[in-house]
């Protein structure tokens, strides 16, 4: 069951094996921003019969699944940022100052509705620091977000 969950987390996300990231390798934290999606033909074929290649996935997680899920940026035991494609959605929302991905991020960090617009503003203002290069990984971004929040009076308590 647990191994299968790890597989599900990895599925579709091309993880650069060399990147050592928080949470340990294989958790998707090494995922780089603006990652493309390879193996598209397979994906297309899969959608024809609505295939689910997730093996035995039934419920997000029970306990740890091999990844370190103690960090704040987790989502039912998986990392929201490490999910395929999410990192660049977050990047766009952060640059623009709002959006669904940014809201999802703040919800996963336990930031209540009243502090979310402040969170959005702080993220928008620190965009260049958080996405410092086009080579940043999900792990880098998570660390930068934590650092930015630490130094903010209102947001520090959510780390």
């Amino acid at each position: 069951m647990k191994k299968a969950l790890v597989a599900a987390v990895l599925l579709g996300s091309s993880v650069s094996a060399s990147a050592v990231a928080p949470g340990g390798p294989g958790c998707g934290w090494g995922n780089m921003v603006f990652e493309g999606k390879s193996g598209l033909p397979v994906h297309l074929i899969a959608t024809i019969v609505n295939g689910t290649s997730y093996n035995k996935t039934f419920g997000m997680t029970t306990g740890t699944n091999g990844c370190d899920t103690s960090g704040a940026l987790t989502y039912g035991g998986q990392s929201l940022l490490a999910m395929n494609g999410v990192l660049e959605e977050v990047a766009m929302d952060m640059a623009a100052g709002e959006g669904e991905a940014l809201t999802a991020l703040s919800v996963s960090m336990g930031i209540p509705a009243e502090d979310r617009s402040h969170f959005n503003t702080v993220m928008h203002d620190n965009f260049s620091a958080i996405f410092s290069s086009e080579e940043v990984t999900a792990g880098d971004v998570m660390e930068s977000i934590s650092a930015v929040m630490q130094s903010d009076e209102k947001l520090a308590k959510y780390i």
């Binding site: 689910t52 039934f58 997000m60 989502y75 998986q78 999910m83 395929n84 999410v86």
Partner: peptide
């Protein structure tokens, strides 16, 4: 089979 995955995916 029925499977459950995050809606985000």
């Amino acid at each position: 089979r029925f499977v459950i995955v995050p809606y985000a995916t």
